[in-house]
Amino acid sequence: MATEVIPTDASKLKSVAQIAEGTAYKPLPQKAEDGYVTAHAIQTIAADPQTLYTLWRNVEAFPRWQEYVVSVKELGAGKSHWVMGNPEDKDGTRVEFDSQIERDTPGERIGWKSVTKGVEQEGVVTFVPAENGRGTIVTLIQKQRVPGGAVGNAVAAVAKRGPKQIVIEDLRHFKEMVEAGEIPSVAGQPHGPRGVTGSVKEWMLGETNPTPPGSSEQR
């Protein structure tokens, strides 16, 4: 798998995030080819880059805000062990793999890649100060193998979302945790009888995906 598909070159990503004057817009990588999907999400988050970098670099806290992460163990030297699956379904499918942080620039970017044979995913997140004073422009790019199955794409193997939507929801939940101190949820609230159509709609709207707990400790 060619690492070059994701532009891990910092200068390229920064030029997109900062929309440099007098330059042509160059789309972020977003394509599906050869069994891989590259997707991105971008959010302006009301916090400084160093704070956001520190939160993201704390890989053991990922289950608090990222969907379908059961646990993460830091193994040292940028390596970590991930258990993916639905945390609310104790008997559900679990996919385990090791991930290695390959590029780690404090306050600016983190790039990672799975190092377990058969699991093919890699990603990069960058933190660029927003010039309008609204915080930090956070860009998340992930390349994943599709279709996943138990091997290949560890996230898609357990999540009820498309590979592009997973990236969008992951960054959204990160932003919600940082800005609001919690991740909005209606899981477990009362309702009348859903019936068949109500239940189908719930599933279609993605409401059966478990919401990560979030944490106000982050504020």
């Binding site: 949820s185 209606v186 609230q189 009362p190 979030g214």
Partner: peptide, 15 residues
Amino acid sequence: IEVHDVKDPEIINPQ
């Protein structure tokens, strides 16, 4: 529109 007996709401998030 129907009136139903449903469970009481509970705290979900800390705020």
